[in-house]
Design a protein around this nucleic acid. Sequence first.
DNA 1: TGATTAAATGGACGTGCGTCCACTTCATGA
DNA 2: TCATGAAGTGGACGCACGTCCATTTAATCA
Lengths: 214, 214
Amino acid sequence: MSTMSRRELVVGLNYAGRDAGSPVERSDAARNRLKVVKAARVLFEERDITSVTMEDVARAAGVGKGTLYRRFPNKGLLCQALLDEPTRLVQAEAMRLVSSSGEPLDKLGEFLGMLVRFTEENLDLLYGGNEPLCGADRLARFAHPAYDWRRWTILGLLQAAERVGELVESDLDLEYIAAAILAPLDVDFYYYQRRVQGIPQQRISDGLRSLAPS
Amino acid sequence: MSTMSRRELVVGLNYAGRDAGSPVERSDAARNRLKVVKAARVLFEERDITSVTMEDVARAAGVGKGTLYRRFPNKGLLCQALLDEPTRLVQAEAMRLVSSSGEPLDKLGEFLGMLVRFTEENLDLLYGGNEPLCGADRLARFAHPAYDWRRWTILGLLQAAERVGELVESDLDLEYIAAAILAPLDVDFYYYQRRVQGIPQQRISDGLRSLAPS
DNA sequence: TGATTAAATGGACGTGCGTCCACTTCATGA
DNA sequence: TCATGAAGTGGACGCACGTCCATTTAATCA
């Protein structure tokens, strides 16, 4: 972790925009990408995101469907592009937390709280963006760098806790646990608990923390 | 729980077929339902379920699309109908387990193992059936009686453990925990771990058990 | 048996997704 | 400045889902 700069990670996570591979982006492409993002932001704010179709976005941006899809292969990636800034922020905050001094398990709790807050604050975009991942790439979210980043961060903290002797039980499968702890943060699950069942955010935050080993 | 007979629960879970509300089913309807189920079973066995469309099923059953959709509003419910038998079995097995003698937490572990086994054995149908729940009813699975049943079973065991003094930590939000423990059993998550990451079933089973409080 | 009505049928239809590809526009370098 | 080709564009298209409704069929009762 220490050899990996913050910038590398952040760039690695910047999925939907110009990708890190191709060096240049043509001016018309850049212009249109901006138009799309702007239009999407407006539409998503004034209407239920679920009801906004990709065609709506294209039309509002004054751009063909093909153009839209070239940059944003599906609604999920479009939403992610809109979440670029908050994502960066939460990552930076997490970096600071992880490299701060303190007990690993406390940090883990704090980290989980941050993730809950992030999910809460961006719930509509996350939920709307999760919708079209139906076809072949329903599993894409698990392969996404942002997901990996979460998993590795949690795993790192758990391993640190183990090293320091903070974990009572030994022989725990920390890798599995790291992944499993993230499962209740899956958007659909979270959305259902909050918007349908009406469970308060605090309960989720506390409950999730209590799920981590100690 | 003691006042609720096994039959009531099982009937309540029999979602996709003739529902418990309407008393009769016309003979032609019954005939066609059977044709559909049979055809679906064949198609799902010989082809990747994801690639089988509802129209395929209708055609193979020699039935119109409207007819198919009248009984099985989506692919998920069709798959569930095919899982009727295994579902009954696992339920019955769970009933026996719950009402047997033994420590609640042991039972909980056992129960989670059963759920993992069920998921494993029916993974393709579950995964295929989870696919079309994209539109409005992505959240349907959480409102489904079978899901509730799992949650309540776990909650019951946790509460029993608490009563008996088996739980070290007090003040746990058992309701949240019961739901959260089920999250890693979500089909997509499970499918990804098994089929993409290649994690062995045993690891999932053990890991899930270790997630339960103790 | 014939009339009545509620349920069931099935295919045409509308919708949104995502692809495809003929055409256009931009960047480069001769 | 203009030729060249790579990148970008946009709308027509195909697919699958799920709905709708005019028609058919089964159950009931006189």
